[in-house]
Computed example of a mutant assay.
Amino acid sequence: MKERYHYASVSEALALLKEKGYEYDFNINEHEIEQNPEYFEIHHVYRYEGNTNPDDESWVYGIQSKEGKKGVFVNGSSSDSSAEVIKFLHKLAIKE
């Protein structure tokens, strides 16, 4: 990944990624990536840690399919994400 972005919050990262066309919700449709991780790339990664509690960590991924579908996946300590979700994210290629 060539570009790095520094956002004040997860919601700001999501809003700006949406402006770039990342509108699909991969949290709701994570099975698409789980079943075919080779068809997806991570184009943006944003990590946010709360000021008062390091456990308030969140990750925002901007993901694109080979067909051009752009979406986001949010993972964090307060999300319902499982260890299985993290495993399939590690299988995705990161665009350089």
Rank of each mutant, 00 (worst) to 15 (best):
D25V: 08
S77M: 05
S58V: 00
S9V: 02
S81L: 02
Y39K: 13
K87C: 02
Q64N: 02
G62L: 05
F73P: 00
H43S: 06
N36L: 10
Y24A: 10
L89Q: 06
V85M: 15
P37V: 09
V10F: 03
N27D: 05
L89G: 04
N29Y: 08
T52V: 02
K91I: 07
K20P: 02
E57L: 08
H90A: 11
N53R: 08
Y22V: 08
D56G: 05
N36Y: 14
E23N: 14
Y7W: 15
D80S: 10
I42S: 04
S79L: 05
A93N: 11
V45A: 08
Y39L: 13
H90F: 10
S77I: 00
F73T: 00
K20G: 02
K87T: 09
V85P: 02
H6F: 15
P54L: 01
H6A: 09
Q35C: 02
S77E: 14
I28S: 15
E3S: 13
G76D: 05
E57P: 00
E57W: 07
E41S: 14
A15N: 12
E84K: 10
Y61A: 01
R4T: 10
H90Y: 09
Y22I: 08
L16P: 00
K20W: 05
L17A: 11
E67C: 01
Y61M: 01
I86C: 03
H31F: 08
S65H: 05
D80Q: 08
V72M: 10
R47K: 14
L16V: 09
R47Y: 11
V45K: 12
Q35E: 15
K18F: 10
E38A: 14
P54G: 03
E49V: 12
L89R: 03
R4S: 10
V85L: 15
S11L: 07
S11P: 01
G71H: 03
Y5H: 12
G71S: 04
E30T: 00
S81Y: 06
S77G: 08
S81Q: 11
N36Q: 14
K66E: 12
Y24H: 15
V85E: 14
F40N: 04
K18S: 12
E34V: 03
E67N: 09
Y5F: 14
D56W: 13
E57G: 04
E30K: 12
V10M: 04
S79N: 07
H31W: 12
I94L: 11
A8I: 07
H90I: 03
A93L: 12
